[in-house]
Write a protein that binds this DNA or RNA. Structure first.
Ligand code: MN
Ligand code: MN
Ligand code: ZN
Ligand code: ZN
Lengths: 140, 140
DNA sequence: ATTCACTTGCAACAATGTTGCAAATATTTT
DNA sequence: AAAATATTTGCAACATTGTTGCAAGTGAAT
């Protein structure tokens, strides 16, 4: 059922609809939680060239369809942006959670990154907050 | 003059004193701000094998001599830990700043990561806060 | 000085990321 | 619906980054 949704999103973001883009976008829609480049390559099967995956993620990023999440292990994760993002600039001020047990990276959409006061001379442009620990599902 | 200091730190952390370790540790002592693996490889010159740099950073990490800082660009940075760290566990609760102009990553030792309340079910083990923008030196 | 443990460099390899280009496909126009 | 145009894809070739086993080199202890 995410097929329709995927096409809709692509159109809304002025991206032409192709097999690869639809497939990758569906992965994001189905899987809740963030995906790394590697995850996507695996989940998409042998269907798409690695280069295509790179370029697709790049395109999605530029259009603001997804956002990237830094990690401590040299493997950026990506997650879908909420609707409010797509229209213009990013509203991406939520905390990210990385589970040390299952390895999942989760957007805590409801947890806002707190404001932070820096020493004189520093100008803040963006703030990322990464929490690691044990996630809800693993924690029982 | 950081030569003595380097040896002292190595001894304190029960690491045998070798050319490579001393040199890399000196780099950290001299340069204030974080270094990536690549930075170190360049700054150390052609003197050391890449593998040695990896293994040295690994050793420093394990001993708690340095800590790693996640970034959004697939290149972890490392920075010296304060003295309080070395003795036992990490006290690494400061904010990290990444300058979009000069590219430097800076430990804001005086800015503490604020506590954060997560939804029911999540257990926090570690919190990272990454601020990007324009740093003090670039900002004039 | 000798011994023993640890560290290093090398080689070989694996994994990840980048680029140019021609063929394939999607979109727009007629 | 077909042709024209713009965009996307896969391939190949390459660059960069990270990993491992092992023999030789070096540091620390006796
Ligand atoms: Mn998110
Ligand atoms: Mn730091
Ligand atoms: Zn989990
Ligand atoms: Zn700067």
């Amino acid at each position: 059922m995410s097929e329709k949704k995927a096409e809709e999103l692509l159109k809304k973001n002025q991206l032409s609809i192709t097999g690869g883009r639809r497939k990758i976008l569906e992965l994001f829609l189905q899987h809740d939680g963030a995906l790394s480049h590697g995850d996507i390559e695996k989940k998409a099967g042998e269907k798409f060239d690695r280069v295509t995956v790179y370029r697709t993620l790049q395109a999605f990023l530029e259009k603001g369809l997804i956002h990237s999440i830094p990690t401590s292990d040299n493997s950026i994760r990506y997650a879908l942006c909420k609707d409010e993002c797509s229209g213009g600039q990013h509203r991406d001020d939520h905390v990210h959670f990385i589970c040390n047990t299952c390895g999942n990276t989760i957007c805590l959409e409801d947890v806002t990154v707190p404001a932070i006061k820096l020493p004189r001379g520093y100008v803040t442009e963006q703030v990322e907050m990464l929490v690691s620990g044990v996630c809800k599902s693993c924690n029982r």
